[in-house]
Design a protein around this nucleic acid. Structure first.
Length: 286
DNA sequence: CCACGGCCTGATTC
DNA sequence: AGAATCAGGCCGT
């Protein structure tokens, strides 16, 4: 068995690993004995926050490559202090920022992110994670670290080859058709997710919404959590409640009207504002 | 354009 | 206990 390599990586405060990994944006992190374990870019990683940043255990010996990968994944280029200044428009947001200070938006792999949010329709975090794990276990490549094994998330080509029926058997329900279709579009070369990264928010979103089973909410999630569109403002039931109760006094606005409001009110970093509203409202419950 | 039922399925609620 | 209800939506009518 391969030996685990260790790395201590400095991350300037504020940084909150737990809030970042458990705020519903990524779906394959598991907590056990003080460590978060997950698979990023085909590598099995274990992470633990310490005073200086994070401790990392992995099979990667090239510390420079690992540091670059994590810096990209955690979007360390985003200056949280500056972002807070821009979105802290009121005491409510101030409270959320204080409570979850250091929660970052991740830069996930687009295909995996798209898959997760296709699975998210009328589902819940536990089941989304279960679906993602089933897909990985069925088609991914098995990798081991510290005696534990996980699987990489399979390529769109592999998922396309597996087919809708197989995905249904994995428990995706009506979402199986949508995931199979998206996988097929990518495998055939009709859709290149990395191209969306270079497009404007509007154009990239229009391209995603074009796919069956992908509406504005799922598109916005993929755009903000994997394609660098920090102005995307996904509105699920929690964000809808938060905005309705805290800002719009129950006004019955439609999805894109709320998005427009969010852009005017929070500005470019509306996506970050959304993450704090979502996390806060969801943990408060009901 | 708007409203509403239906969709898979597993956990939770009644 | 067994049946409704509800989950980080979207589609078709």
């Amino acid at each position: 068995m391969a030996v685990a390599h260790m790395l201590n990586m400095h991350i300037p405060p504020p940084f909150n690993l737990a809030a970042t990994l458990e705020s519903g944006q990524a779906h394959r992190w598991q907590w056990s004995n003080g460590w978060y374990s997950g698979v990023v870019h085909g590598h099995f990683l274990k992470l633990r926050q310490d005073n200086n940043g994070i401790e990392v255990r992995s099979s990667i010996q090239d510390t420079r490559a690992l540091t670059t990968m994590l810096s990209d994944y955690f979007r360390l280029g985003d200056d949280l202090v500056e972002i807070y200044k821009r979105i802290e428009k009121d005491s409510r947001m101030s409270e959320m920022i204080k409570r979850y200070s250091g929660m970052r938006i991740l830069r996930q792999e687009p295909w995996e992110c798209l898959s997760a949010f296709i699975c998210s329709a009328t589902s819940n975090l536990r089941r989304i994670a279960s679906n993602m794990e089933s897909i990985a276990d069925a088609m991914g490549r098995r990798i081991t670290l510290d005696g534990v094994s996980r699987c990489t998330f399979p390529s769109a080509g592999l998922v396309a080859d597996s087919g809708e029926t197989f995905l249904r058997e994995l428990g995706l329900g009506f979402r199986a058709k949508y995931l199979a279709h998206a996988a097929s579009e990518i495998a055939r070369g009709n859709l290149e997710l990395e191209e969306l990264r270079r497009m404007s928010y509007r154009d990239a979103r229009a391209r995603l919404v074009d796919l069956p089973g992908i509406g504005p909410k799922i598109a916005d999630c993929v755009l903000v959590f994997s394609l660098d569109k920090l102005e995307a403002f996904p509105i699920d039931r929690w964000v809808s409640r938060a905005v309705g109760e805290w800002y719009l006094d129950g006004a019955n606005l439609k999805y894109d009207e709320i998005v427009r409001w969010a852009h005017e009110y929070f500005g470019y970093y509306a996506g970050y504002a959304q993450q704090y509203l979502f996390h806060g409202k969801r943990l408060d419950g009901r």
